[in-house]
Simulated scan of single mutants.
Amino acid sequence: MSHIALNDATMHYDDQGPSDGLPVVLVHGHPFNRTLWGPVAKVLAAAGYRVIAPDLRGYGDSSVTPGKVFLSDFADDIAVLLDHLGVERAVFGGVSMGGQITMEFQRRYPQRVRALVLSDTSAPAETEEGKEFRNRLADRLLAEGMDGYAGEVIDKMLAAYNVTALPDVAAHVLGMMRATDPRGAAAALRGRAERPDYRDTLAAVETPVLIVVGVDDVYTPVSNAEDIHRLIPHATLTVIERAGHLPGVEQPEQFNAALLDFLSTQVASRA
Score class of each variant (00 low, 15 high):
P182R: 03
D139L: 12
R136F: 07
P39C: 14
D77I: 00
D61K: 14
V267P: 01
K131E: 15
T127W: 09
P66Y: 02
R112C: 15
Y109G: 07
G21I: 09
D120K: 02
V222I: 09
D261W: 02
L56Y: 06
R183H: 08
E206D: 11
V218E: 04
D8L: 02
P110V: 09
I101A: 06
G145Q: 03
D83P: 04
H30C: 11
E206S: 12
I154L: 15
V267A: 00
N162S: 10
K68T: 11
L231V: 08
L174A: 09
P66F: 04
N33D: 15
F74M: 12
P66V: 05
A150C: 13
F70W: 08
A257K: 03
D139F: 12
M176T: 00
G94V: 06
P23N: 11
V169E: 04
P182W: 02
E128M: 07
R183Q: 13
P221H: 01
G48Y: 13
D61R: 14
R242A: 11
V80F: 08
G184S: 06
Q266R: 09
D15Q: 06
A257N: 06
G60T: 04
R270F: 04
Y59P: 01
L141I: 10
E128V: 07
G94F: 02
S223Y: 05
M1D: 09
A186R: 00
G145R: 06
A47W: 08
T10V: 13
S72V: 08
Y149L: 14
L44T: 04
V205I: 14
V91M: 02
Q111F: 09
N256Q: 05
H28I: 12
V69C: 09
Y149H: 13
V169W: 05
A9V: 03
D15W: 08
L44V: 10
P23G: 11
V163Y: 03
I78A: 02
D168Q: 13
A271G: 05
R242C: 08
Y109R: 09
H172D: 10
P54W: 10
S72I: 07
L85V: 05
G184K: 00
I240M: 03
H229Y: 12
